[in-house]
Design a protein around this nucleic acid. Structure first.
Lengths: 308, 308
DNA sequence: GAGTAGCGATGCCTTTGAGGCATGATGCGT
DNA sequence: ACGCATCATGCCTCAAAGGCATCGCTACTC
């Protein structure tokens, strides 16, 4: 004679009975007939092997064991519901972890509002931000440790296994000290830069930047003279301020630029731009939260063109 | 079309499948047929509304949601089992709280070994000791805040609503300073005490003691002279040491007596004794743990007569 | 103190759905 | 191409949850 195992039904019924202290009323609340409830409770006590309640003609009272069990069962049921809700929330992208890689200066206009909106929208997703170079990001995306990356649109070879969507396009500007003759111009033709000494960022660490700068001068004669390569934006600014030379920077740098430097747009307007993209791995699905965040980013960028 | 609610069965099955990553093997472990298991899992996913696993011709893999759910479900099931075990343990007297009242000096021989044995036997019962006077104990027992009390057998009027069982019976002795003439006697006839000044404990706080002392001298002439009433055992000892008078004490006091005092048995041997009992409320059942402890006390007392 | 109202338990039947068996569909490896 | 392992589906059985009528008990009421 095999007894049916304990099921959640028993627990749900038990809570109802223990709260009503009356089989008839509990049965009504549960929308079952009282005899069925009676038998389920008998089965439960039989399974546990402990008397949980005392029945009398005027209702039900809980034994000490019954009171303890009520306590426990309430927690178990709450925990169960919570588990299901967590899974549903995860599927809706409202729970879980989201790993985002970003280049700090390059995403300064994009990331903060997106993060704020996302945190507001789905506060239970744990956002983990990773300050990475483009190469590290590509690697992490392929490995799957990163869900999304916000980066400069990379070259072909760095892009294998990845997919991109444009977030914002920044034209290049020239950064110069206020006393420089070009400071009087509203905009600077790139042809006039070829005779100026230039300060650049270090090639190996900022390969995307380097590539774009070369692209800007493609086909011009003579090629500009690079008098210094700096290993960070701030040292670049210092070099320009010190008058060592001018620097080419995408317009986004206006946010991080020292006030002691001026930024002038380049002409013509159809020069190569620095494109900031959101990257994801081609293989493997995005988590729902990542999908949500990606959408967030794309619709945020109402104006995709970086103004100057 | 009403879908059956989620039951523990679904969770147990899910864990089996998620562990085996194979319906056929999981079904074998669960001793059900594979198709049944398949359908239960379909029902589960349907109920939650989330895909928990991906099926292929080579087995099963968990989705991210499925992994989270596995984690959660394992905890829920463990919690459920634990709840049932707690209730069973409570019913067996191996879990819960046990409130014991005791008079410190009077239970010095009885309580420590019983506590040690009990803690060893059922370590998960939380023992709460209450140092109370007899009156407070009786009150607490009737109120139900106390499970058991270890006390001096009380008078009728203090005993209403309570039941007692004898633990140990202590004959009275006389406490005297070493230089007192009676110190040379092996035992002291009570008739010789009626001419000695006596030191006693304060009547209102130690009514049981008082009653017994009066009982000892019942029928004797003249009645002894009580020269001082002390409000604690230690001040009583001091008074006797100082030579203010002798004191009558049950033999159990040999454990707490200052070494500067001698204790001599009284004769005849059939004088009233101080009986230490375990008390419980008449109405209301003892908790299983209390019942267990009571048995412990009763069988511990292999020799019920306090030796001298 | 008989009647009655409210309680849970029991007997008996219905219905639901879990489970079993046979088989289908599919993808992988040989 | 075939075989094998996998999970899904169709169909049936049967256990057990659920419903209805009724019983037995107790406590209150008049």
């Amino acid at each position: 004679m095999m007894r049916p195992a304990m099921e959640l039904r028993h627990l749900r019924y038990y809570v109802a009975v223990a709260e009503a202290l009356n089989f008839t009323k509990a049965a009504a609340r549960l929308r079952v007939a009282q005899p069925s409830l009676s038998r389920q409770m008998q089965g439960l006590e039989d399974e546990i092997g402990v008397d949980l309640m005392k029945r009398s003609s005027r209702g039900v009272t809980l034994t000490a064991e019954g009171k303890l069990f009520l306590d426990e069962v309430r927690q178990v049921i709450a925990r169960t519901d919570e588990s299901v809700n967590k899974v549903r929330a995860l599927a809706r992208g409202e729970y879980g972890e989201l790993h985002i890689g970003y280049g700090p200066s390059v995403s300064v206009e994009i990331l903060p509002p997106a993060l704020a909106a996302f945190k507001n929208d789905v506060p239970h997703v744990k956002l983990v931000l990773h300050d990475l170079s483009s190469n590290e990001m590509a690697e992490a995306l392929r490995r799957g440790t990163l869900d999304l990356g916000i980066m400069v649109s990379p070259t072909e070879e760095n892009a294998v296994g990845l997919e991109f969507q444009l977030l914002k396009s920044y034209p290049f500007c020239v950064a110069l000290p206020p006393q420089h003759p070009f400071a009087r111009l509203k905009q600077v033709p790139i042809t006039r830069l070829v005779h100026e000494p230039l300060v650049s960022l270090h090639q190996s660490e900022y390969s995307d930047y380097h590539r774009l700068v070369l692209l800007l001068f493609a086909g011009l004669e003579p090629q500009p003279r690079i008098v210094a390569e700096c290993d960070s934006g701030s040292s670049l600014f210092t070099a320009v301020q010190a008058g060592h030379g001018l620097a080419l920077l995408p317009a986004v740098y206006r946010h991080v630029l020292s006030t002691r430097l001026e930024l002038r747009p380049l002409t013509p307007r159809n020069l190569p731009t620095m494109d900031v993209v959101v990257a994801r791995a081609t293989k493997g699905d995005l988590t729902p939260a990542a999908e949500k965040f990606r959408r967030q980013l794309l619709q945020d960028g109402t104006l995709r063109k970086g103004s100057v």
